[in-house]
């Protein structure tokens, strides 16, 4: 449920390096986060070109019962967003690490990834 090849944040995002776009990382929310939220019905993502600062709110996820925010795991520039989620936000529930990905960013400092949680760290946080 928490793939070993991803990095994680304490706010329940995952980061995959590399992403599809040249030099990017791909970002989504974890299995734990989607399960806590329940049926996701609306996803608001930043636009391509937006400059994000680590830990800042950059989007919004709304389920039938609650709203939660998406945080930038690292600082950098948005180079892709998953437009499919506009019409099919339920993909986040179905495949949080696959079709439910959210954005790709080019980190301003690649070494920032090293500061993120490993799968083992994250598992300890949500299962601990």
């Amino acid at each position: 449920m928490y793939p070993d090849d991803l990095r994680y944040t304490s706010k329940h995002e995952w980061v995959r390096s590399p992403g599809e776009a040249e030099g990017s990382v791909r970002i989504g929310i974890t299995h734990f986060a989607q399960e806590q939220l329940g049926d996701i019905v609306y996803v608001q993502l930043p636009a391509v070109g937006d400059e994000l600062t680590a830990d800042d709110v950059c989007g919004e996820l709304e389920s039938t019962k609650s709203v939660s925010e998406l945080y930038a795991p690292v600082s950098g520039t948005v180079v892709a967003r998953n437009d499919d989620l506009d019409a099919s936000p339920e993909q986040v529930n179905a495949e949080p690490y696959g079709a439910g990905w959210m954005i790709e960013m080019i980190p301003s400092d690649e070494s920032a990834l090293e500061g993120l949680l490993t799968a083992a760290d994250y598992r300890a946080q949500v299962e601990g």
Partner: peptide
């Protein structure tokens, strides 16, 4: 079920999911 509090009672909020 996931449970939530309603009027002092622990009640099922959802099983498979609200939309389902």
């Amino acid at each position: 079920a996931k449970f939530a509090e309603f009027g002092g009672w622990s009640m099922p909020l959802q099983y498979s999911g609200v939309v389902d």
